[in-house]
């Protein structure tokens, strides 16, 4: 059975011992003050990260994360065969500039906030298939660049509803390859685009929950597993609203998620931080996974984790034209220990 690489239609099984050899994150001040602050590699004290535009600040954070991930894996950038990265800005510009600076062969990704696990799954697949010995993957988001891209100017005094979410400022990166140490990437489940007709761009948790449900359910069926097979199952950025919806839908279908389930958008901020229903953005799942979860796997706190990064694949034009929000979720299984 060594050559089986696919279980069902959507789940990949990696046959080599592929690991996250090094990972790192960079964040803005608000995220640094959150409950996971101690585990972050770079915490910038201002949202500009000492740059003169927010776009450059986001780029700086992606570069910080990539550089630290490389140094933690003890690899130089010219040893990396491919870089897979994405972000939320037009033409994934943050990733393009970062890839230019790093001069690593580059494949740009857009999966909105699911980019973190899209990149990790593809990096593992490229290493597993032998097209790359080492791959670097990462993604970034910035509260102010995302607000400009998708909503209003940062200083505009519009009132947001309590179910809105707060885009995480930060970036996460990981070096993937075969090696002796680090969390093992064992499976990935590639999601389908699901759209149940939600049109309110502030209501991302409700819009994305069915995509996460679909991916998690498919993952369980393909692997004949259930929630009890994991120490922790996290979704990327459903926030408090989506978290509750996902739990209830899966309970309807016979999966009790309560003991193991959490959401990166809830984990990254504390309850007293004013972020509406929780965090969102590409960086949300990347920052939590590449710091807290990787650390937890390395230290034995967790032994098997499923990370399901959720993305809302709408554009500023599509929602203004009254279209609903198509959503996606990709899951990757990480196992701890040596």
């Amino acid at each position: 059975m060594q050559n089986v690489k696919k279980l069902g239609r959507q789940t990949w099984l990696f046959s080599k011992e592929i690991r996250i050899l090094g990972s790192a994150v960079a964040v803005g001040p608000l995220e640094g003050q959150g409950p996971l602050g101690k585990e972050f590699d770079h915490i910038h004290s201002d949202n500009y990260a000492s740059q003169n535009s927010w776009e450059k600040a986001e780029r700086t954070m992606m570069r910080d994360a990539a550089d630290s991930a490389l140094s933690k894996s003890s690899l130089a950038k010219d040893q990396i065969d491919v870089m897979l990265a994405g972000d939320l800005l037009n033409q994934i510009i943050t990733s393009n500039y970062t890839a230019h600076e790093l001069s690593i062969p580059f494949l740009g990704l857009f999966g909105a906030c699911s980019t973190s696990m899209e990149g990790l799954a593809l990096a593992a697949a490229l290493v597993d298939s032998g097209f790359a010995q080492y791959a670097l993957t990462g993604c970034s988001s910035h509260n102010s660049t995302a607000e400009r891209q998708f909503r209003y100017p940062t200083e505009y005094g519009g009132q947001k509803p309590p179910y809105a979410q707060w885009t995480v400022t930060g970036a996460g990166a990981a070096v993937v390859g075969e090696g002796p140490y680090g969390p093992k990437i064992t499976h990935a489940t590639i999601g389908k685009v699901i759209d149940l007709g939600i049109k309110d761009p502030f209501d991302m948790g409700t819009a994305m929950a069915p995509a996460a449900v679909d991916t998690i359910k498919t993952h369980f069926q393909d692997l004949e597993r259930g929630p009890h097979d994991y120490d922790l199952i996290v979704t990327g950025d459903l926030g408090r609203v989506g978290y509750a919806i996902l739990k209830d839908i899966l309970a309807d279908q016979g999966y009790n998620m309560t003991p193991v389930y959490n959401d990166c958008g809830i984990m990254i901020y504390s309850a007293d931080q004013d972020v509406f229903s929780g965090g969102s953005g590409c960086a949300c799942s990347a920052v939590v996974t590449y710091s807290h979860i990787v650390n937890g796997l390395n230290k034995g706190k967790y032994s098997r984790v499923l990370v399901v990064a959720t993305g809302a694949l709408f554009s500023p034009v599509s929602f203004q034209q009254g279209e609903s929000i198509p959503c996606i979720a990709h899951g990757v299984v990480l196992e701890g220990g040596r």
């Binding site: 149940l196 069915p210 449900v213 609203v241 309807d252 229903s277």
Partner: peptide, 20 residues
Amino acid sequence: KFQLNRETYSKETAAYKPKK
């Protein structure tokens, strides 16, 4: 509770949103 179709989903999930 959940039919998971476009017609009903919005109504099924309305109660999850914190009220203004």
